[in-house]
Design a protein around this nucleic acid. Structure first.
Lengths: 336, 336
DNA sequence: TTGAAAGCGCTAACAC
DNA sequence: GTGTTAGCGCTTTCAA
């Protein structure tokens, strides 16, 4: 090794004239060491700039302090909020966050998990509750605490902390219809592998069917940039269903594209066209008019996932499902 | 430990009827093991679902496969692009990314680095070239390869991979003036601890002074949400300097706020007011008109940082400075 | 091509 | 309150 200075437990022990064990104790359970001894040890630690190896500690003690998380992408605001929550909670407990992106692909999720397992993380945090069968089996064996963020499922591997996309869209669609907007359309990108879009669409369809209304659905290719997809999808929606009176977008960024579409066509929002989004980005509250959307407590989801993992380490057992819910932020673009 | 199954090298060795060393070789340097032996070993590995511990490997071999990165925040698109580049490059080399957020605070950067050092990372990736004196000293001791992303500095600790904010704003301001916009204003948030905003402002000031023009600068509080700050800053700019003919924003999100400000005032873009941003977010190319802005190759920065660390591990020595440059994306909002 | 011995730096469990 | 012994699961080095 020799890469780093700082020395080892043994060095410090020698300097302070005690045994390695006493140094180890002084560092981890200071109250179990006599004040005088502790002083001497701490001085030696400071002088040498000693940083104990958590690799060695992990090997010997069975706890690495590493928690691995996998998100579909780190470039989407909704997930970065969760990462933020994870980071804060883990750092506070002297743990470190290892992170990877699956790009919404189940096979790369599996590959990443297998790789991370080699570092013997104290916990594993995944996004969504759908995995490859092999991964599901592997994780069910219970080697490591697994928390699934974002979506809910009846029988999670460990913990599921999230909300129901379907419920959110059911409520939002109902409220639009109740407000007299009986011809709302639905616009999304066809993100392959992301089960949340079908959930939202399902909620929309359910309510439309219940109300005896025909669905108006436009799916843009998943490869298209969001704002562009929103604008293009909006155009297609009006081409296919010219009498549409509201556009429900599967994300705020899509809705922003729709907003530009309205501008180009001279449609007033919300008088001629109501607009709704999903995700409550910062920009949503700043649009003209401000965007009615669904707010998700992303940071809280991350924090709760970290908390649950820490609870497991502290000896708590058993699976949990936590619905953190959603909020419908009613603003100018759709006064429902 | 016993937390995980999969067994140990010794288990596999026993099953395959060879020594631990041979298993270790079969896994890491398959060509150095006889084909038949290898077969037997691989079968045992598969049967038991063996995943070698990288903790033990790191302790014994001196290489952990962990690379730690610290960014100011994971919620800013510019940094998530870099994270993406890091992640891809590291995953390809079987390394894992440990990540933390400094919230633009130098002391928490130092705290995080000290914590990460305990895991003996193969490399350390920081954002920016300004650190606490203690951290600078610690890192200069050379214990671990350090790459600094985003900004450039003459004598980096290890590598500096970034671009010059100042140069970008010098060029952009020059081009505005050359295009006949002689009364451009500058709007930013006063982000404490982020040295890049002063850099941009410095570039602007320099060119204005050279041209014999008075600076028109508005700084909004750093705590304000970006779009809101952009709109409010734009209002203040026009209040203080009513004859302003162009607004240069320190970020695209601020510029979006400015765009809304123009809408409210009935100002045409770019005829009555030219607008420029910084960062080239996805939405920038989708505004009406599309936003003229400065494009930074964030993902490339991350990739190059990872590449450099990997080069150091492979035995290369020495510091480097890589200027990845910037591009001025000239679009409708300011045809310069 | 394969194996045996020694040790990486720490902690758990048990003395004293 | 402190020390001793015995590993944790690998890799390095050297020998066969």
């Amino acid at each position: 090794m020799a890469r780093r200075d700082g020395g080892t437990l043994a060095d410090i022990a020698r300097r302070a004239g005690v045994s390695k064990m006493t140094v180890s104790r002084a560092l981890r359970m200071p109250e179990k060491v006599a004040a005088g001894t502790r002083e001497k040890i701490m001085r030696a630690v400071r002088e040498r700039g000693f940083v104990p190896s958590r690799l060695a500690a992990g090997l010997a003690g069975g706890r690495t302090g590493l928690v691995a998380a996998i998100v579909p992408t780190t470039t989407t605001t909704m997930f970065t909020a969760a990462i933020r929550g994870l980071d804060h909670a883990l750092t506070a407990e002297q743990q470190a966050l290892v992170i990877g992106q699956s790009e919404y692909r189940k096979d790369s999720e599996e590959r990443l998990v297998r790789a991370y397992l080699a570092w013997r993380p104290d916990g594993l945090i995944l996004t969504g509750g759908v995995h490859t069968p092999a991964l599901e089996t592997l994780l069910r064996r219970g080697g490591v605490p697994v928390a699934e963020m974002w979506t809910l499922r009846p029988d999670p591997i460990g913990a599921a902390i999230g909300f129901s996309d379907r419920a959110a869209f059911v409520e939002l669609t109902r409220r639009l219809i109740a407000a007299g907007l009986r011809r709302p359309g639905f616009i999304a990108r066809d993100t392959i592998g992301d089960p949340r879009v079908p959930e939202r669409l399902g909620g929309y369809r359910e309510v439309m069917a219940d109300a005896g209304l025909g669905p108006r659905v436009v799916l843009q290719p998943g490869s298209q940039p969001a704002i562009q997809a929103g604008a293009a999808g909006f155009d297609r929606l009006l081409a296919e269903f010219p009498d549409t009176d509201a556009a429900m977008f599967a994300s705020d960024t899509l809705a922003l594209g729709g907003r530009f579409g309205c501008m180009r066509r001279g449609l007033r929002v919300p008088e001629d066209m109501a607009l709704t989004g999903f995700g409550d980005l910062e920009l949503s509250a700043e649009m003209e008019p401000r965007l009615t959307t669904i707010t998700i407590p992303g940071e809280r989801i991350g924090k709760l996932a970290a908390d649950w993992v820490q609870g497991q380490l502290a000896g708590k057992r058993g699976a949990t499902v936590v619905d953190v819910g959603y909020t419908i932020a009613v603003r100018g673009s759709a006064p429902v």
